[in-house]
Design a protein around this nucleic acid. Structure first.
Length: 282
DNA sequence: GTCCAGGAGCGTT
DNA sequence: AACGCTCATGGA
């Protein structure tokens, strides 16, 4: 069991677009990876994470808790910094170290897509292909294994709303099986470059897979929100993806994944707040 | 009907 | 190396 602080922002951490395997449940939140199930109990006193099944997992490591605490003690996170202010507003956004295969397939679905559609496709794939587990008398379905993904027909992926990304899944699943052992020890930019060899994986998706599977703390994915945040916060704009990548890793070093996540969420929520305000004024 | 979403592939310049 | 077009799909 792992105690998470009261300041843990479960919504942004679990549903903010770094993971698509979490859902609400009676006690709090349920996370169904391909090989393990996690439960976060929400109580008046805080959050309690525990593992329900699967090969034993280091929960602190899954939530990057030690790294996050280091981030809080770092020069990047200091009085008056943009991150100190962001945390006061948004609480603790942890960056998960998820199963590599689950993260790989999830983010193949992410290009030119939105978070709720990605989640619904992941839920659909899990329902159709995933291992069934019984929890509290109810059936749940875990994320499909890579082996399972590799033997499916294209049509199955279309049925789950993957759209044109169905071909990414179909093609990359075969290659994933062949290459996963070779990628086991890779991390950082070397892993990112390797991932880009897969169909459907460009710069951004490669960063997502590497960072959100816990293999590249010194990077953070740069999507449209991150670009807007970097422009608004630091007045910087670049033509090339690798220039953004270099900017983040140079400025924030091993804390880049947390810095990037706070920039992303701050910018993304700014839009949502504007939407809510304009809706309220009408 | 149009626009947008944690973009990438592919052909043309 | 740098553009521009296209790719499903559901919600706003």
């Amino acid at each position: 069991m792992l105690i998470l602080p009261k300041t843990f922002n479960a919504e942004l951490t679990l549903f903010g677009g770094q993971s698509f395997v979490w859902r609400d449940c009676e006690y709090g939140y349920l996370g169904l990876h391909s090989n393990l199930a996690l439960l976060i109990k929400k109580t008046k006193n805080g959050f309690y994470a525990e593992q329900l099944c699967g090969e034993e997992l280091d929960l602190e490591n899954y939530f990057s808790k030690p790294e996050f605490e280091r981030f809080l003690r770092s020069d990047t996170f200091k009085a008056g910094s943009e991150f100190k202010r962001a945390r006061e507003l948004l609480g603790d956004i942890f960056v998960l170290k998820q199963d590599f295969a689950d993260t790989f397939f999830s983010f193949l679905l992410s290009s030119n897509n939105n978070i709720s559609r990605i989640r619904s496709s992941v839920a659909c794939l899990s329902l159709k292909l995933g291992r069934k587990i019984k929890l509290g008398g109810e059936n749940y379905y875990m994320f499909p294994s890579a082996e399972q993904m590799a033997q499916e027909e294209l049509s199955l992926f279309y049925e789950c709303g993957a759209g044109y990304r169905a071909e990414y899944l179909k093609e990359s699943a075969q290659k994933f099986l062949r290459e996963k052992d070779g990628m086991k020890e890779m991390k950082g930019i070397k892993l990112i470059e390797k991932l880009k060899e897969f169909k459907g994986v460009g710069d951004k998706v490669a960063d997502c897979i590497a960072v959100f599977s816990g293999k590249a703390d010194e990077y953070s994915p740069i999507d449209r929100w991150a670009k807007r945040a970097i422009l608004n916060t630091y007045g910087k704009e670049f033509a090339k993806y690798y220039e953004y990548r270099k900017f983040l890793s140079k400025k924030f070093g091993k804390h880049a994944k947390f810095a990037g996540q706070y920039l992303f969420e701050s910018e993304r929520l700014k839009g949502q707040v504007d939407t809510l305000l304009s809706a309220a004024s009408r």
